[in-house]
């Protein structure tokens, strides 16, 4: 953890809580066909974190550009902006202990308002928006808060079943303090009926876990005559306290 000014706490160096793999989607989810040949089948090797998993790099706010967290403008021609329903996505990154996690690098990517990605492999009929690239990033503040501005992505059809559609979603890459906290997930939008039909979402067994990926409309955070707002909190693995563990340093 970046040293908090005015804090006499030492950096946290404890191992992370064990991951609850029944809460995550399993490797093999046959309804999502791509998982069939890409899912490991043998038992994983389990061990308590070593320093290699506990440690992780630090990304400083200095790396961020002015428009990194504004997908409406970061790819747009000067004076223009992306087409679509303008939204603010905001929330907090917490760990399993409920503590805000500062300095977390969040990277997000998404389709445009019509459901089309700016990628040569996306052949969906919906048109590209010349003013929308589809990527952005930010770093959480000292309390774990983050926010960015974008347009609401459209749902899109994808080749899986004969007629499968992805619910509207934003992909999130989350980089916490330890490499073992590394996580990629997706944010869905409250009230979207496609969520419950999606084979990727349905890889998650627990309804509460799916709801944990569903952002809620936040009318208090909207900007009148400009943007709607959705709140989306993210939870990373928590750390065991290392107070009572034998520490390597000092040996």
């Amino acid at each position: 953890m970046p040293a908090e000014s005015g804090s006499n706490r030492r950096p946290e160096t404890g191992a992370f809580f064990q991951r609850d793999r029944t809460w995550h989607p399993p490797a093999l989810t046959p309804g999502y066909k791509s998982s069939v040949l890409r899912s490991p089948q043998k038992a994983l090797l389990s061990f308590d974190n070593t320093l290699s998993e506990i440690a992780g790099p630090v990304f400083g706010h200095a790396m961020l550009g002015e428009l990194d967290a504004d997908l409406i403008h970061n790819f747009a021609r000067p004076g223009e902006s992306a087409i679509g329903e303008r939204i603010i996505v905001h929330g907090r990154v917490l760990d399993e202990r409920g503590v805000g996690v500062p300095g977390v690098l969040l990277e997000f990517w998404q389709a445009n308002a019509g459901g089309r990605y700016r990628h040569k492999k996306d052949g969906y009929l919906a048109p590209l928006d010349p003013n929308f690239g589809g990527c952005g990033r930010t770093i959480t503040d000292e309390h774990g808060f983050y926010a960015f501005r974008t347009v609401k992505p459209g749902p899109y059809p994808w080749p899986n079943g004969p007629n499968d559609w992805r619910p509207a979603h934003i992909h999130f890459s989350v980089f916490g303090h330890g490499f073992a906290q590394r996580l990629i997930t997706q944010m869905y939008f409250e009230g979207d009926p496609l969520i419950w039909k999606c084979p990727i979402v349905r890889g998650i067994a627990d309804k509460a876990a799916i709801e944990a990926l569903t952002a809620i409309l936040d009318t208090q955070a909207t900007i009148p005559m400009d943007a709607l707002a959705y709140k989306f909190d993210i939870v990373l693995r928590g750390r065991r306290s290392s107070l009572f563990e034998n520490r390597l340093e000092g040996n």
């Binding site: 809460w23 399993e96 202990r97 996580l183 990629i184």
Partner: peptide
Amino acid sequence: RLKESPSQTAGPYVHIGLTP
């Protein structure tokens, strides 16, 4: 205790977000 956010696949367009 909170539960870790469940993972979802990076999908076919992970490059857009991580290596644009």
